[in-house]
Write a protein that binds this DNA or RNA. Sequence first.
DNA 1: TTCTAATGTTACAAAACTGTAAGGTTATAT
DNA 2: ATATAACCTTACAGTTTTGTAACATTAGAA
Lengths: 224, 224
Amino acid sequence: MSKIMIIEDEELICNELSRILENNNYETIILRDFKNALNKILEVSPDLILLDINIPFINGETLLQNLRKESNIPVIMVTSINSEIDEALSISYGADDYITKPYNPNILLLRIGAVLKRTKTNYNINVNELTYRELKFDLQKGIIKKDNTEIELTKNEMIIFSYLLNHQNKIVTREELMTTLWDNSEYVNENALTVNISRLRNKLKEIGYDNAIDTRKGLGYILL
Amino acid sequence: MSKIMIIEDEELICNELSRILENNNYETIILRDFKNALNKILEVSPDLILLDINIPFINGETLLQNLRKESNIPVIMVTSINSEIDEALSISYGADDYITKPYNPNILLLRIGAVLKRTKTNYNINVNELTYRELKFDLQKGIIKKDNTEIELTKNEMIIFSYLLNHQNKIVTREELMTTLWDNSEYVNENALTVNISRLRNKLKEIGYDNAIDTRKGLGYILL
DNA sequence: TTCTAATGTTACAAAACTGTAAGGTTATAT
DNA sequence: ATATAACCTTACAGTTTTGTAACATTAGAA
């Protein structure tokens, strides 16, 4: 369940937004003014912020600018209709989306869903994962996770696996893999690739992926 | 320079869009109908697609749905005003943004810029590179490239560097780095982190990034 | 079926990686 | 100015990674 922070001064709108979101399984936190807003945001650490740009006295852009120095929490700006300048500024100051009042609740929910989806793997920054069947492959650490098992890959194994993963269901030639691994600068034994493939296969086998990498003799390998 | 494909049947709009984009340093490719559109997209491999949802006979959503099976090239839907249903569907079918006609050229450009920025590192799948100043950091291989120099990072150095990179200009605590590196399962000497930071700094220094990682005593590190 | 090139396996040694310890340096509070 | 905790550097040794070589297996052409 995602936490959404609503920053908005008009009570009616707050309540309406909150009701819509809570009905759709979001947790909401309301902030009625900008006093100490930045600290509160960082303290609460919401998954997304709905920010009204027209709160009097202080403007939303300043808050957004300051927030962006500290965090990439996604922000959807809520603007009055026809305020194109606001719109332009919001984007260039780092808003992830904006929506104009009055808004259709379904559209709002879709936009929130879309922003959450596209930022999920990105803002919570270090989750750089590829998925393969039931596996998660952590690109940074070179770890494959399945259920509660973890397998560590060496650098070579990582390179091969992510290359295959990015070409899933396509045949990858041995030469492709060779140049990916060794940049054809230094000479290495042809067999070095075979050995590395073999080692990767053994690790995959340990977690039940026995025939994941298939040999297409004379052509290359394919990850199924 | 980014390539933008315009899929739109009205000639006037095509030309106008094309002019605006070319004036702003984008290369444009125009597709006036959906005949074979998917193949053409994959062949041209544009960096972004502007897709008119109202082309007669076939609808844009179908194309988008099919495209999404093959590729994550970012798509901005162009819709007629007030077609909220289209809007909703576009997002749920995988559009990255949409814009309503008539559009303000500056807003259009900003949105294009924003979409390109946020998808740059993500959609073109095998180019898994992060950029830091004049450096390119290849996440798969753990190689930092600057001009024609290459520096190899070890796994630990990769983890630290990409963590810092993903939190650029933000202070990262030593504890964060410790748990990122060692998952706090096994005990390691506090100093192990210091040593690894030191090794990473030495490598960065070799290519002229002397004070890239700054110590904030008592707080952590920050990548400038 | 038989032959052969392509691919696989294993063991091993050189090279790279990495945590530790011991001692040095530095920023900050008092 | 001084003390001290925080951080840095270096050398070292245990461990892991990796290419090689020697031999084994296999798919597919003839």
